[in-house]
């Protein structure tokens, strides 16, 4: 693609978002509706709060819980999923319970963890990690089960069996499927992070926003919503980049095919 064509593509992709923000900015400029303050005022407040005055108080703890909870989910989901993928007999008994537990809306499990753990950080991390485990577990199980039989035969010829076969053949081959589970798990982890703060916490970006709403600090609530939206989007972008690097071999293979 030449430079000018690439520039054109960027322009075509960018005019609508720019226009929408511009429309919001001008349409809200004279707004006297208390619930929809002018975007310029929201923006000033956003800079005051989040660049970077309140970031250590509210954003860092949220992201910390998200990171720890998600890390636990990745280890548990891939580990248990791999075992269930190899052993069909175990899976037959575990799957119905997993099926039931993951059918509970993730956010609705937060009250359960509040009953067990109270309102501290351990409740939030437990809720995040459990909710994010299910999609990762199921994707890993399905991916490990679906290994190309030719690969397994080849591995058998080289006497690669048992744990080595799982670690060196089945899991790497399942990576594309596992990554789709990892992505869904991350999105759920983000949602539960916010939900666990809405439902009881003094700090964290979700708590900040809902407390602002309840106290009719409408500007602050708007900045919180915008910040959460941007964070949610940024997390997806980061995941896409990591996935693209990790699955380079697979993407290259698909292009060849």
């Amino acid at each position: 693609m030449t430079v000018s064509r690439r520039l054109l593509a960027v322009l075509i992709g960018a005019w609508l978002p720019v226009l929408l923000v511009y429309l919001w900015w001008t349409a809200s400029a004279e707004s006297t509706n208390p619930y929809f303050p002018p975007l310029s005022v929201i923006w000033t407040r956003f800079l005051e709060l989040w660049v970077f005055d309140q970031v250590p108080v509210h954003v860092v703890p949220s992201l910390q819980n998200l990171a720890v909870g998600y890390a636990i989910a990745v280890v548990a989901g891939v580990g248990v999923g791999a075992v269930l993928g190899v052993s069909r007999r175990t899976a037959r008994y575990v799957e119905p319970v997993v099926d039931f537990l993951r059918s509970i809306p993730a956010v609705a499990t937060v009250p359960v963890f509040i009953v067990i753990f109270g309102l501290d950080a351990s409740m939030r991390i437990a809720a995040i990690s459990v909710a994010a485990t299910w999609p990762i577990l199921i994707a890993t199980m399905q991916g490990v089960r679906a290994t190309d039989p030719t690969l397994l035969d080849t591995a058998a010829v080289f006497r690669i069996t048992g744990a080595q076969q799982l670690w060196r053949v089945r899991l790497p081959a399942a990576q594309p499927i596992i990554f789709s589970g990892l992505q869904l798990g991350l999105q759920i982890a983000f949602v539960v992070t916010i939900a666990s703060e809405y439902l009881g916490a003094g700090f964290g970006i979700g708590a900040f926003t809902l407390i602002a709403t309840d106290s009719f600090l409408i500007l602050d609530a708007w900045t919180g919503v915008i910040l959460m939206g941007l964070l949610g989007y940024a997390i997806n972008i980061v995941f896409d980049i990591v996935e693209r690097i990790a699955l380079r071999w697979y993407i290259g293979q698909k292009k060849l095919a």
Binding site: Y35, V107, Q187, F190, T213, M228, G229, Y233, N236
Partner: peptide, 16 residues
């Protein structure tokens, strides 16, 4: 952009 933003994020504004 809006596809990946979970609805839970905008709840405070919808409550208002």
């Amino acid at each position: 952009f809006f596809k990946v933003i979970p609805p839970i994020v905008i709840i405070p504004i919808t409550i208002l």
